[in-house]
Amino acid sequence: MLNTLKLLLPALIPSWRFFEVIAASPRIEIAMLQTAQTKPRNWKAVRPKPEQVTFYTMLKRLFWNPYQNESLFLVSCAERIIKNPTDHSQQEILKRVVADLERDPETVPLPPYLQFRLVFVSRGKAKLERRVRYTSPVYQISDSAQT
């Protein structure tokens, strides 16, 4: 209960420091594995942005935008894992990634195991830099339980 009240406090006394610093931005990548011991090779970006979004779609999303809002929550979970890794953030990412895979006919039937990693993109001297800052344990997809 005390922990929940601590979470409420920033809402009652907000800091409002929006976009204060543009920090490195996380991308979630997954590897689908046949065994728990398989070394991941083909990392695939989770929820890549579409090339283009029409103005009509932008207007529609003012009222109905669950996918982008869920994607932003995944970004929050990724940032939380770096600051303070918890099972909650890992499971939130895993659960939603598995739901995406289940919806995608190209990835059904699902492979038995899954691993994800967090790649942080930031401004480099000449070009964008990508740095892997977290690699998850291997998860068994059937029960989304950590192996």
């Binding site: 979470l7 409420l8 809402a11 409002w16 809002n69 932003l72 929050s76 939380r80 918890t86």
Partner: peptide, 22 residues
């Protein structure tokens, strides 16, 4: 709202959730 904060271990959508709670 407290249950939702607990469910997501914080706000689901940052500032917008905080303003809603405020």
């Amino acid at each position: 709202g407290l249950f939702i904060l607990k469910r997501f271990q914080g706000p689901y959508n940052g500032g917008s959730d905080r303003m809603g709670l405020l």
